[in-house]
Nucleic acid binder design. Structure first.
Lengths: 196, 196
DNA sequence: TGATTTTGTCACCGACCGGTGATATAAGTG
DNA sequence: CACTTATATCACCGGTCGGTGACAAAATCA
């Protein structure tokens, strides 16, 4: 039933993951909970169905843009390119509050929903990495560097929902993000001027 | 009662945060649950008592070392210093699995335990930042840069408990950490050679 | 039409949850 | 000793949880 599937997202959005369960879901969808077992074989199955029903991760296109945009983007200096990609990625994530909630939850539990998220994210990460490989980058361990930056983005996206400062610095504002991207660009830029 | 307080940590370690509750704790401590209300005024109070009973965050000394060690450390090139500090910090966190569990949980819920963790972490962060300020660093937004790196460390510490790779790269190994620190040092090093 | 299979409803299970009131036991005090 | 106060035990509350078996209504098919 459509109502059940869509109720998963609504319930997570309203109450957070902690309060999602068979009973709450059935209540929300105005459906008898036994149907969740009959049609989806339980909560996990319903999660899986829900995972297929929504777009909870950006596509490579959403990050890089369409064909010709990619050309233009890629022709810029590599530090600008990386900054733009990281920034777009962060915006894509931040525009998906449900995804952030799932990302928070995957720190704590592994279920059909978090596994689906893992997979689509992994695939997108590989695709994106393949694109970036075409760039003319200074020699460095770029996969690790970009991973590190993405870790930081993910952490900040999740964490800034609950706290406002970290080591004295404000993190819950647009400016905080800008400072972070500036710093990342600054760091990346340095790699092009390394003595070694 | 001592047994109640220590049971908090044991239960979290054994079952994870999700399964901690008044009943489970009382069972574990072999104590009637009413005592939790009487002595600690409920779960939150017990959390608070537990928070004060353990060392769940490294001190500045644990990171920088004792007086004379600090001198020696600080006399090294700044990229080495930062790398060492970040590495020690990561090791300190990684040696505290309970802390990591709490860090995972604070993504999802805010309670007396996560709040206590926030506070001690914030204080230590400020102290550490004060020390680092004495370093002769190239001009840059260092608070944001170090925060970014710490975000990445925290994320990796939490996340590597549940997954093994991220964008194709292995993250659940000693080598993964080394690669990350190498990359961080590499990035920091670049800032010293920037054309501006 | 009648028979069968799908779809939905209802009542109920045992287990656990957080929380409380009454009461027994032990310790301290005069 | 008796008396008070602190400490611990027990039984029980209403509510929610995940899960199931029995059965009614509706759609499908002969």
């Amino acid at each position: 039933m459509q109502r059940m599937v869509s109720s998963v997202g609504e319930l997570i959005a309203e109450q957070g993951f902690a309060n999602v369960g068979v009973n709450a879901l059935a209540r929300k969808a105005k459906v008898d909970k036994v149907l969740i077992y009959r049609y989806f074989d339980g909560l996990e199955g319903l999660y899986a169905a829900y995972a297929n029903s929504i777009d909870f991760w950006p596509s490579v296109e959403e990050i890089l843009g369409e064909e010709d945009d990619v050309q233009e983007l890629m022709s810029q200096p590599f530090d600008k390119v990386l900054r733009t990609v990281l920034e777009r990625f962060a915006n894509a994530v931040r525009s998906r509050p449900l995804t952030i909630e799932i990302m928070a939850w995957e720190m704590v539990e592994r279920n059909a929903l978090t596994i689906a998220l893992e997979q689509v994210r992994e695939q997108m990460g590989l695709d994106l990495a393949a694109h970036m490989q075409k760039l003319d980058l200074p020699s460095a361990d770029w996969p690790t560097i970009t991973n590190t930056f993405i870790f930081a983005i993910n952490y900040l996206a999740i964490r800034s929902r609950k706290i406002e400062r970290f080591t004295g610095i404000e993190i819950n504002s647009e400016q905080a993000w800008t400072r972070m991207f500036d710093s990342m660009e600054f760091l990346i830029n340095g790699t092009g001027n390394s003595k070694s």
